[in-house]
Nucleic acid binder design. Sequence first.
DNA 1: CGAAACGTTGACCGTTTTCAATTACAGTGG
DNA 2: CCACTGTAATTGAAAACGGTCAACGTTTCG
Lengths: 213, 213
Amino acid sequence: MPEAGSKRADSPPPILSSAWSDEWPQGLGRTRLRHLHAGEVLFRQGEAVAALYRLRTGRIRLVRNLEDGTSVVLHVANANETFAEASAFADSYHCDALADVASDVVSMPRSEFLAALASDRDAALGFARLLAGQVRDLRARAELRSIRAAPERIMAWLRMRATGNPPIAAIDRTWTEIAAELGLTREAVYRALAVLERDRRILRSGASVTLGR
Amino acid sequence: MPEAGSKRADSPPPILSSAWSDEWPQGLGRTRLRHLHAGEVLFRQGEAVAALYRLRTGRIRLVRNLEDGTSVVLHVANANETFAEASAFADSYHCDALADVASDVVSMPRSEFLAALASDRDAALGFARLLAGQVRDLRARAELRSIRAAPERIMAWLRMRATGNPPIAAIDRTWTEIAAELGLTREAVYRALAVLERDRRILRSGASVTLGR
DNA sequence: CGAAACGTTGACCGTTTTCAATTACAGTGG
DNA sequence: CCACTGTAATTGAAAACGGTCAACGTTTCG
């Protein structure tokens, strides 16, 4: 049987993007920069939605406070991620956003954002496309996490972001961060990498991993 | 300018939706029904995008075939989920879709969908809102899965979907399905439930769980 | 009515998490 | 230019937890 996926009249495979680099604050509306020091609050649950955000550096934690006084973490945004996109469609924030560490965020006023979407025909579609991409990405990540064995999970992750023949994956973050994305401890990742390398399934050299097998 | 999301002044807390019930095929364009028997292919990677889909019953597996001949599962869609939304913005499918079990899907021609988005300004915004909701939801799920201990993971899940005081969560699916969503085996879920009930942290009665602690 | 799937619990085994310790750097301030 | 400090990268050992296998009653649905 011939290789599957032989004819791709479309773009190459972009399964997992490591970061949502070139995203919405791309000219539509005035953006502002804000610095938060560790522990500072960006917005609080119940407040009127003032702006949409994108994290430049640092780490922002989104926490929903429940009626019974407890709380749950909804998301931990890392560098170059947008967050609370859904607040564009809500009048008030539905969770708290607070900086775990010193962080820089780019903000765009909600009113301007909505105005841009309403006036520019392509803007709304562009926003939808962007979100659709995130959905695809998040689902792929979720599927990844349902692979139980650590080495297999990492292999799948590597294959998803590898290109070329032989497939080579560029490592653009620390393994510690990658471990968090994979839902493993960093120790488990290192051990799995050691096993994979011992079995000649991967070959590490600096910031790139060559896949075999 | 049309106030996005102005329908509900500001709804209560809807953190985790169990299913994306009322979604896109809501009048925009003609939809068609198609039945697939187990193992049948809905579309293949590389094919021109003909339609967008929503799964009524069954289970559809989305698989990306890599250049090196291997493949990775991108997503396993369950009843009442839409899938391959991103294909609305692509010319060809980037993965295979095949039915794990006998399934029923609702399809909407891509051309009609795009036409609807282009003509009706609110449609595009509505689609974006829907996707933003899915992003929020998927991120919450991901955060949930990063909770290691099974009982705590389940507690967090229950708290997310509980309402009232005391918080009560309605169980609208089988625990087996919930286990899959939580990234646990059903046995692990039952054991964790037993522990939680023994410690008086939850109280089960039929299709609802009352939370304490 | 019977088969398939769900619900539930027990025992055992394997993997990961934890905890700990060590090396390697990169940035900082003296 | 060099200790100094904090984080990343590794590896080891022991404990804990969840997965797997097994068994069985119950519910569901064709």
